[in-house]
Design a protein around this nucleic acid. Structure first.
Ligand code: MN
Ligand code: MN
Ligand code: ZN
Ligand code: ZN
Lengths: 129, 129
DNA sequence: CGTATATTTAGACTAAGTCTAAAATAAAAT
DNA sequence: ATTTTATTTTAGACTTAGTCTAAATATACG
């Protein structure tokens, strides 16, 4: 069991870029950062690898409502807040309560499997302007 | 002030479809439903109208991480839960607490402007199968 | 080794939506 | 009422993000 994770050189390089990034890069940004390291993979390989890394749980895919998905090397449970002005994405570790999730299960009669909170606001830097 | 809302025939028809729908239709679904009423507008007009209706606050745009945005004629504050199996989207009126939002403002130093919760789970129907 | 399986590659293709420039409507000014 | 101005619609080209396909490579297995 525990089907071993198969990290090919491409997947490893992409995973490295994500872990070295703290800003939740998009696929396009990952491709840029690979290029800086003189690595250039087929377009499709980057997307296939991102899907693979997501599936095996090494990274998380964030869909914040922007056009492009972002990727997160921190797979600990946390949420995100995005600045409406500059677009930066920051971490949020204060999570919703279990009681709240239970209340929703009761209200909707769904079996709640996951929740994602997307907060929008103004970051400290942009507030100064 | 209060810059009056300009509901052209096209915008009105699209708004009507959204209000008559309770399933948060996508642009493509709205176009289908217009066709049933023998209404056919330019592709771009539908998107322009959806943007307009969203901007003036008559509808809400939902980005649940699917490919296409969905539109909601209920503009009262509420959240959504989507079935991972059949894709249907249901309403969630149990909202997060103000305390939780304050905790996030303190943690992140952001001025929190909005929050969107996307819950995923199994709907009662799909659970029976 | 030889064959099956998995992965990468380049490039065609798709889905959702935006943009553009011209035509049609509507509103405002003469 | 007619001209001028502003707004909206339209068709279709274009963009962005991502998937699909078929061939070429690489890896694993007997
Ligand atoms: Mn994160
Ligand atoms: Mn709703
Ligand atoms: Zn900012
Ligand atoms: Zn379902």
């Amino acid at each position: 069991m525990s089907s071993k994770v198969n990290l090919t050189p491409q997947r490893k390089a992409i995973y490295d870029v994500i872990r070295e990034s703290s800003d939740h890069p998009t696929a396009a940004e990952i491709i840029e950062r690979l290029k800086v390291k003189d690595l250039s993979f087929a377009y499709g390989t980057v997307y296939n690898s991102l899907r693979y890394l997501t599936e095996v749980g090494l990274v998380h895919e964030l869909k914040l409502g922007d056009a492009a998905s972002r990727y997160d090397g921190n797979v600990d449970e946390h949420q995100h807040i995005q600045c409406q002005i500059c677009g930066r994405v920051d971490e949020v570790f204060t999570d919703v309560t279990k009681e709240w999730l239970n209340a929703i299960a009761k209200e909707t009669d769904y079996t709640v499997k996951s929740h994602q909170v997307i907060l929008k606001g103004i970051c400290p830097q942009c507030r100064e302007q």
